[in-house]
Each structure stands twice: as structure tokens, then as C-alpha cells.
């Protein structure tokens, strides 16, 4: 015979002060958070700027800028919502939800991250102005040849452990252009130029963050144990508890099949969407809704009730309380 859902036997009403419970809870939590705040404070790692990045790692900065210019950078070929590339487009089977909204935040890395920011500098440095003019007037094949020559020299400089780069003549205008961009970055100009909008007020950091999102941030994040492969989503900078409640979400990124999939993020979304639906709809899911009956922890929570109302005492009285 099927067990009924709720214990039908009438329960005695016991005086209970709900408001007192809430007030005591407020006092307990107040003491808790004030104590923790006074003793431990809270983390505040200063943000990274393009200026600090370009001063600390000028060659990594040049690699980033070259990738933006020649289209080999991650954002240059990212795909929606930034552009029409396909480098970071994720699929679920044959469907790509990522492609449906299209390009809503257009980013052309060569134009937005290199050529446009060079314009102010070009007005005061004729060498930069003529380099940009030469580059713009060249064929795609010529540009690629310059970029390749520059990239080879840059790779060699990085390998040799050099701290600066003497661009080869074969790199043509790319040498003075990227040298100019590095100079602009190191005096703090690029931070502002990537942020400036024609509407004066700025609240959108898409461009500077997309510029920094690659090697620049990963190098710093890995020293702080924030990488995705380090369960980083749960972690906080410094010795602080992080977002422990994201443990299940970040767990999936530790599964090699998902971590190595080009559509890993989309897969995790699907898994979490299903699990979230299960959580929300537990009351109506057969099996799951009876799970606590089997776990039996309820016998502990209501142990006094069961002791005082043994099942053997007889069937429930039909009369109400």
C-alpha cells in the first residue's frame, strides 16, 4: 500500500515567536559579518591596465598587438557577437546558439585595436603617419609579408629572452606602427583610446578588456589560481573564500571530454540547465520527490515527534485537530 505524503495525525500547537526568531537571526548574522569584516576585510586586487601590462611585458604586448593586426589573435577571428569569424563559435550538435543573434558588438581588431588608436599619435609623429599611410595603401599580400617578417623577428626576440625588439627592415611599416602603439600604451594613452566613445561618457569596457583578455590576463590569473582548469570559478584573489556555490558549474570544466571540447561552454550550459530544471521541479519528478524518504535524514529532524507518536499507536484519528 502506498505511503501517504504527509503525517495526517494532528499536532499540538506550541507557542512560538516568529518575530523573535527573525530578530535573533539578524543579531547573529550582524555579529558574524561585522566580526569577519573587521578581522579579515575583503579582497581588492588592483585592476590590470594596458599601461602596466605594456611596461611589464613589452614583447607580450607586441605579440598581442600583432595578433590583432594580422588577424591571428583570438578575438580577431572570434565570431559572434564580435565579428563574422568562426574561431570561438560553439555548437550543440548541428546548432550554434551563438550565431543566432549575429554580430551585436562589432569588433575589427586591426582597425579598433591598432589603426584607429594610432591616429592621435600620427598627428604628432610623421614617421607613424607615413607608416600607417603605407600600410593602408598596401595589398593584402604585401601586408602579410610585412607582418610575417615582424612576427618572425618577434618570436626570435622572445626566445632569446630579449626585453625589446629591433624590427627588421623587411617588416616595413609594421615596425614603426607597433613601436608607436607600444609607446602609446606605455604612457597610458591606449587605455583611454580604447575606452573613448564619441558620446564622451564611458561605461563600456568591452574594447580594453578584449585587448587584455589573452596572455596578459592569463599569466596573472594563473599565479592567483583563477584559471578554469584550477576550479578557478570558485576561487577568490588572496586567501578568501570564493564562490563555493559554483562548485558544480566549475566541476564540469574538470572533465577532460568537456574541457577539451571546442564547445565545452555550451555543453556545460546544457548540463546545468537540465540540472537546474531538475532542482526547481523536484516536487513533481517521480523518484526524485521520494528521494528524501529513502535517505531518511528526516527521522533525525523529527525524532521527538516519532518517539512521541509511534506508528503502532494506531491509525490516525479521522477527526481534525
Amino acid at each position: 500500500m502506498r505511503q501517504p505524503d504527509v503525517d495526517p495525525r494532528p499536532a499540538r500547537a506550541v507557542p512560538y515567536d516568529l518575530l523573535r526568531e527573525v530578530l535573533v537571526a539578524f543579531c547573529v548574522v550582524l555579529v558574524l559579518v561585522v566580526t569577519m569584516s573587521a578581522v579579515f576585510g575583503s579582497p581588492d586586487d588592483p585592476p590590470m591596465t594596458i599601461e602596466s601590462f605594456s611596461r611589464q611585458s613589452p614583447l607580450v604586448f607586441l605579440q598581442t598587438a600583432l595578433g590583432d593586426l594580422d588577424g591571428s589573435g583570438e578575438i580577431a577571428s572570434y565570431g559572434p557577437p564580435y565579428n563574422s569569424g568562426d574561431g570561438s563559435v560553439q555548437h550543440l550538435g548541428p546548432v550554434s546558439l551563438q550565431e543566432i543573434p549575429g554580430v551585436t558588438i562589432p569588433i575589427n581588431t586591426a582597425q579598433d585595436f591598432v589603426l584607429s588608436p594610432l591616429q592621435p599619435l600620427a598627428t604628432v609623429q610623421p614617421a607613424v603617419a607615413s607608416a600607417v599611410r603605407t600600410f593602408r595603401g598596401a595589398t593584402a599580400a604585401q601586408r602579410q609579408a610585412w607582418e610575417k617578417a615582424y612576427g618572425d623577428a618577434l618570436d626570435a626576440a622572445v626566445k632569446s629572452g630579449a626585453s625589446s625588439l629591433q624590427a627588421p627592415a623587411a617588416a616595413g611599416p609594421v615596425g614603426p606602427m607597433l613601436a608607436g602603439l607600444l609607446h602609446e600604451a606605455q604612457i597610458g594613452g591606449l587605455d583611454g583610446l580604447l575606452l573613448t566613445s564619441s558620446r564622451f561618457y564611458a561605461t563600456d569596457y568591452t574594447k580594453p578588456l578584449l585587448f587584455l583578455q589573452g596572455a596578459a590576463m592569463h599569466n596573472r590569473a594563473s599565479t592567483l589560481n583563477l584559471l578554469g582548469t584550477q576550479w578557478g570559478m570558485m576561487n577568490e584573489t588572496g586567501s578568501y573564500p570564493g564562490q563555493a556555490w559554483l562548485w558544480l558549474y566549475t566541476f564540469w570544466y574538470q572533465v577532460p571530454a568537456i574541457a577539451n571540447s571546442p564547445s565545452g561552454d555550451a555543453l556545460v550550459w546544457v548540463i546545468m540547465a537540465v540540472l537546474t530544471l531538475l532542482l526547481v521541479l523536484v516536487p513533481w519528478i517521480p523518484g526524485l520527490r521520494r528521494l528524501p524518504f529513502k535517505i531518511g535524514l528526516y527521522r533525525w529532524i523529527w525524532r521527538d515527534w516519532y518517539r512521541e507518536h509511534p506508528a503502532a499507536a494506531g491509525p490516525p484519528p479521522r477527526a481534525g485537530p
Binding site: 579582497p43 581588492d44 551563438q98 583578455q213
Partner: peptide, 22 residues
């Protein structure tokens, strides 16, 4: 702070993967 920057650039790929980031 840096935490915000990092969470933004990491999280964007997940948001973009299913079209929310648009």
C-alpha cells in the same frame, strides 16, 4: 578590480556560447 576583469573575460565565452553574450 582584477577579479572583475578576470571573471568578465572568462565568463564572456560561456555567455557567448549560447547567444546570451550578444
Amino acid at each position: 578590480n582584477f577579479d572583475s576583469q578576470w571573471i568578465a573575460v572568462q565568463g564572456k565565452d560561456a555567455m557567448n556560447a549560447i547567444g546570451i553574450g550578444a
